[in-house]
Design a protein around this nucleic acid. Structure first.
Length: 325
DNA sequence: ATCCAGGGGTCAC
DNA sequence: GTGACCCATGGA
């Protein structure tokens, strides 16, 4: 936690709010985190808000709200930014031992704030075709998914269907099996725990329009996480990146794409490339960096120049698929 | 209607 | 290890 320790909290106000017949009282507190160089909150916020309906956060102009579970406790927060800081408004259901340090750490990891991405920008600027990204996408960061289970479920959901539908499926799953926090009149959801989802049936998920296979994959992964036959720590402790890929792809439903996606988004293995990803391939075609979708030679050639920053290149290429117009 | 979507398993060779 | 085939369903 490089900058995280600088979080300075102070009470802002006390509020009483009513939801139905129940009144909740909570304190609002604002933490300040210094923004690192080459970080743009606006750029990340825009990406999170692209054209999709993500049920795991709520966005309003200039701010981003999310519910998470820290140390077994469900909390919610809202992120804003000023010139030099990220501002974190805490919404908390009670108790004086708010896990501030853990929340700051969460945000640091969410937007990859601990990383000096100067070397990546050096590589970008050297590239004739992609150099524009250093300017157009300045401050964009690898936005992570903290929980490996969630990342794997999300990538299984997203296999071979369009993203709009994928987000629809995720919302159905999360609204049925996840937890909901009502904050400032807004519903914020937390991704389901495997201990809960493991008891769903294929038929349950089929009703939500998951395919039979996907339902099987999701339930298998849920059972494995619930019983501990796979865990984030287990993957983290693998001796090598290759061993991590092997451990994950040994699970039915997790292929090379899914494994790399999860390793990139959760463990931030920057050498992870989600091979075969249609978005990646389309971005490469758009930039005329490959001849066709089978041009693996062209892909290898490009990524070789971005050694150690492959995931960042993938993420920036994905970013290039959506335009702000 | 037709092709595509941020794939993966299975099976033949 | 490579390639053909199937799965399933919404979007454009």
């Amino acid at each position: 936690m490089a900058n995280g320790g600088q979080g300075v909290g102070h009470f802002r106000k006390n509020q009483v709010k009513r939801f139905g017949t129940v009144a909740y009282i909570w304190r609002m507190k604002t933490l300040k985190m210094r923004k690192p160089a080459l970080f743009s909150f606006e750029e990340c916020l825009w990406f999170l808000n692209r054209n999709y309906d993500d049920c795991l956060h709520h966005i309003e102009p200039g701010q981003l709200s999310k519910a998470i579970c820290i140390n077994g406790e469900n909390i919610a927060f809202t992120l804003r930014a000023d010139e030099q800081h990220l501002l974190v408004d805490l919404n908390h259901g009670g108790g004086d031992n708010f896990p501030e340090a853990a929340l700051i750490q969460y945000i640091m990891e969410w937007f990859d704030l601990d990383r000096d991405i100067t070397p990546f920008y050096g590589l970008l600027e050297k590239n004739k075709t992609l150099g524009y990204m250093a300017k157009d996408f300045a401050g964009f960061r690898l936005i992570s998914i903290h929980d490996l289970y969630e990342a794997l479920c999300w990538s299984i959901i997203g296999q071979q269907i369009n993203l709009t539908f994928a987000y629809t499926l995720k919302r159905r799953m999360v609204e049925q099996y996840g937890q909901k926090l009502e904050v400032n009149g807004q519903s914020l959801y937390i991704f389901p725990r495997p201990e809960v989802l493991q008891y769903a049936t294929v038929a349950d998920l089929r009703k939500q329009q998951f395919s039979e296979r996907k339902a099987e994959y999701l339930l298998l992964v849920s059972k494995m996480f619930a019983e501990g036959s796979i865990s984030q720590e287990m993957v983290r402790q693998c001796a090598s990146y290759e061993a991590q890929v092997a451990l994950l792809t040994a699970i039915r439903g997790i292929g090379i794409w899914t494994a790399n996606y999860a390793l990139m988004k959760t463990l931030k293995q920057l050498q992870a490339i989600p091979y075969g990803d249609v978005g990646l391939l389309n971005a490469l075609l758009n930039h005329a960096l490959i001849k066709d979708k089978k041009d693996t030679v062209g892909i290898d050639k490009l990524f070789k120049r971005f050694k150690g920053w492959e995931s960042y290149l993938v993420f920036y290429l994905w970013r290039s698929l959506s335009s702000k117009s």
